Computed example of a mutant assay.
Amino acid sequence: MAIFDLLGRRWAMGIVWQLAAGPLTFSELQQRCASISPTILSTRIKDLSEAKIVGKTLDGYQLTALGNELYSILEPFKDWAILWSKELE
């Protein structure tokens, strides 16, 4: 249940999703998550870092090995969500 609690926090999954493509600086990440406040972004990065899902490198923030594994588990939800959204139309 702990991972659902973490990922259920505002913008946590969005950050994981954005970092799946590669490292991003704080500013780049904030730009990709258009409506996120700097405070929320900072808090979520801290939460995800403490959970060893996100790490800091010279290039910015990136998913750790655990973060990449988590993303590979979450990625099929994208396909399902696309189908689901079409059903709701």
Rank of each mutant, 00 (worst) to 15 (best):
Ile3Val: 14
Ala34His: 12
Gly60Trp: 00
Ser42Ile: 02
Ile40Asn: 07
Leu6Trp: 03
Ile15Gly: 01
Ser35Glu: 15
Ile36Thr: 05
Gln31Leu: 09
Thr39Lys: 10
Leu58Glu: 13
Ile3Gly: 06
Met13Thr: 09
Leu41Ser: 10
Tyr71Ala: 06
Arg44Lys: 10
Asp79Tyr: 07
Leu63Glu: 01
Ile36Pro: 00
Leu7His: 02
Glu69Trp: 08
Gly60Ser: 06
Thr25Asn: 06
Gln62Lys: 09
Ile40Tyr: 04
Lys52Trp: 10
Trp11Pro: 00
Met13His: 02
Ser27Tyr: 03
Ile36Arg: 04
Ile3Met: 12
Ala12Glu: 02
Thr43Cys: 13
Lys56Arg: 15
Ala20Tyr: 04
Arg44Pro: 00
Ile82Phe: 08
Gly14Leu: 02
Thr39His: 07
Thr43Leu: 13
Pro38Ser: 09
Lys52Ile: 10
Leu6Val: 14
Gly14Ala: 00
Thr64Asn: 06
Ala51Arg: 02
Leu63Arg: 02
Ala51Cys: 06
Ala2Glu: 13
Ser72Thr: 11
Asp59Arg: 07
Lys52Tyr: 14
Leu83Ile: 10
Trp84Ile: 12
Asp79Leu: 13
Leu29Asp: 01
Gln18Ala: 15
Lys52Met: 14
Ser42Asn: 10
Leu74Met: 15
Arg44Glu: 04
Leu24Val: 07
Lys86Ser: 11
Leu66Pro: 05
Thr57Gly: 06
Lys52Glu: 15
Leu41Ile: 05
Phe4Tyr: 12
Ala51Pro: 01
Ala12Gly: 03
Ala34Tyr: 09
Tyr61Phe: 15
Ile45Met: 05
Met1Thr: 10
Cys33Arg: 11
Leu7Asn: 00
Ala12Ser: 09
Pro38Tyr: 01
Pro76Gly: 06
Ala12Arg: 02
Thr43Ala: 15
Asp47His: 05
Glu89Ile: 11
Phe4Asn: 14
Glu87Phe: 13
Glu75Thr: 11
Ser27Asn: 10
Arg32Trp: 01
Glu69Arg: 11
Pro38Cys: 03
Thr64Val: 07
Lys46Arg: 07
Tyr71Ser: 02
Glu75Gly: 07
Trp84Thr: 08
Ile40Pro: 00
Ala51Ile: 00
Gln30Asn: 10
Gly55Thr: 13
Phe26Trp: 00
Leu41Cys: 08
Lys52Leu: 14
Ile3His: 05
Leu70Asp: 02
Ala2Leu: 10
Gly60Asp: 01
Gly67Pro: 00
Leu24Cys: 13
